[in-house]
């Protein structure tokens, strides 16, 4: 690396070699070893502007701004189309609910065969199949 190139890089990228293009760093380091005083002076001069630039610090984002962004994103996040995993869980939950409901309906729709009323109805008695509360139907034949 020529001294001119070293100077040009310091003027563009500053006084710290770790900010320089990586493909030129090893040559720059070599030049620093060959001409330590001159390169140190060049880097020091560039680093003075770096220090000034560092004075332009910024405060961290406010909580208010964070909350505003979260408010715009968070409600929609819950409305995302469900993923495969969610579909699987939903399907399982729906299946379980269906089984429970089905079992409950079966209990309602299928009479207890031990119930005397059903037996009476099947034999053509006057009792109503659905009128399970009819006490007369429960009377022994």
């Amino acid at each position: 690396m020529t001294p001119d190139r070293f100077t040009a890089l310091s003027q563009a990228y500053g006084g710290h070699l770790d900010r320089w293009p990586v493909d030129e760093r090893s040559d720059a380091v070599r030049l620093c070893q060959e001409r330590p005083h001159w390169t140190a002076q060049v880097l020091s001069e560039a680093a003075r502007l770096d220090d000034l630039l560092d004075a332009f610090g910024l405060e961290a984002p406010s909580n208010d701004l964070r909350q505003r962004i979260y408010a715009r994103v968070r409600p929609a996040a819950t409305a995302r189309p469900l993923g495969l995993r969610s579909w699987g869980l939903g399907l399982a939950a729906a299946s379980l609910a269906g089984m429970i409901c089905g079992a409950a309906l079966m209990n309602l729709a299928v009479p207890d065969l031990s119930n005397d009323a059903v037996v009476v109805s099947a034999l053509g008695d006057q009792g109503s199949v659905l009128d399970l509360s009819n006490s007369s139907a429960k009377e022994p034949l």
Binding site: P61, L65, R66, A77, T78, G83
Partner: peptide, 21 residues
């Protein structure tokens, strides 16, 4: 992309300072 609320927090905390700056 899956709508993970924790990822939203990570996005905001990780990227907001850089973008704001």
């Amino acid at each position: 992309g899956r709508g993970d609320p924790a990822a939203v927090q990570t996005l905001i905390s990780g990227k907001l300072p850089r973008l704001l700056a």
